[in-house]
Design a protein around this nucleic acid. Structure first.
Lengths: 208, 208
DNA sequence: GTCTATAGCCGGATAGAC
DNA sequence: GTCTATCCGGCTATAGAC
């Protein structure tokens, strides 16, 4: 399928399959997996439902593709954060800042990873584990940064804690549709990372 | 509808309406609102689908009833915690402990309040605000306890923080199906409350 | 690769007998 | 209050023409 630029001139060749995954990714985020129908995706892409099945046999196949796509995107984002920042503390702060950068969407739809994982858990869906693997990427990457900060022993614990904190922020921001809580928690988390920097060898006090 | 006890003798009269709400409450928690059909609820109650509509005209009406039911249950639980414990610190610890007491269900289905609120947000459902009001009950009650602990200024902030932490724990526990993280976070939160007790007048250090 | 047409099922919702 | 029977629409999925 050909996709034309805004000037109607420059054009890029994006495979229909890729376009389906792109739209499905967004729709699954904004409307949930169950809440999104084939018709919704087909309409967003601009193809017929019939054509759809040429590319994906079942809805689960699309979900699988969407999760793979998110895994790839996550890896790329983590690599970029590592490349853009020299210190592990700055890298961790890059992670924390996604809460600020994406606050509007988070208030409307929550965290893409957390909400998908929770929905699939309730559906008792086989792909729930794969969805949680996206959390695994963040967890391992964050643990690596904490190790580089000198937190050898507690690296994984700190990574899980930070992931959990960010999930809590996302859920509360969605529930109350309030961004002031996002900001105060982000400030507290950033202060925490700074404190770990200054005294890396033992347990750290934390303000919130 | 008559409900017989295990001995087949003693019996209690529970209205069908109440029984529907009871089953719907559990099914919405375990399978999600969208994931639960009228047929599911009717089967759980043991009535026909047709009979159903005598009690509730629409699915949204059931949701409304379930939320009201949860509000009532929450108020009763908060009152009980207040009655059972003399100190505000012990009351707050009662709240924290629900993560331990319900850990098995939380690992399977997450937090009933958080997951419902997130699902309704994605569905852009009118009842999302009412679902968040359940959080509001916890928020206000916790803030009251923090005020009693001498945290006049930061009472609401601390309440929101604690609510968010518990939501983060629930999401991570569901994603990784791991309860060790639940325990370590609960320990950290309890220690935090103790610290607030000992030095109530200023910002508190926190271990996690 | 893309379309139209359609099968077959299941969802919410209604009518009316008992 | 409870039932059976039924409508209608949307859903996933398939068949086959172009």
């Amino acid at each position: 399928m050909l996709v034309y630029g805004a000037d109607g001139f420059k054009m890029a060749r994006i495979s229909t399959r890729e376009q389906i995954l792109q739209e499905a990714d967004q729709l699954f985020y904004e409307g949930g997996f169950e809440g999104t129908s084939f018709a919704d995706i087909a309409a967003a892409v601009g193809i017929s439902r019939g054509n759809f099945y040429y590319h994906f046999k079942t809805k689960d196949e699309i979900l699988d593709g969407v999760i793979s796509r998110r895994m790839e995107a996550t890896r790329a984002m983590l690599d970029a954060w590592a490349a853009e920042n020299d210190s592990p503390a700055e890298r961790i702060v890059s992670f924390i800042r996604i809460l600020i950068d994406n606050r509007t969407k988070i208030m409307d739809f929550g965290c893409p990873v957390g909400t998908l994982s929770s929905e699939l858990a309730k559906l008792d869906h086989a792909a729930q584990e794969r969805a949680a693997d996206i959390f695994g990427l963040f967890r391992d990457w964050l643990a690596g940064q904490f190790r580089a900060l000198g937190q050898e022993e507690r690296a994984d614990e700190l990574a899980l804690h930070l992931l959990g904190r960010s999930q809590g922020v996302a859920v509360m921001a969605t529930a109350f549709r309030d961004e002031s809580f996002v900001r105060s928690e982000v400030d507290a988390l950033e202060a925490r990372v700074q404190a770990l920097c200054l005294a890396p060898s033992n347990h750290q006090p934390e303000e919130n």
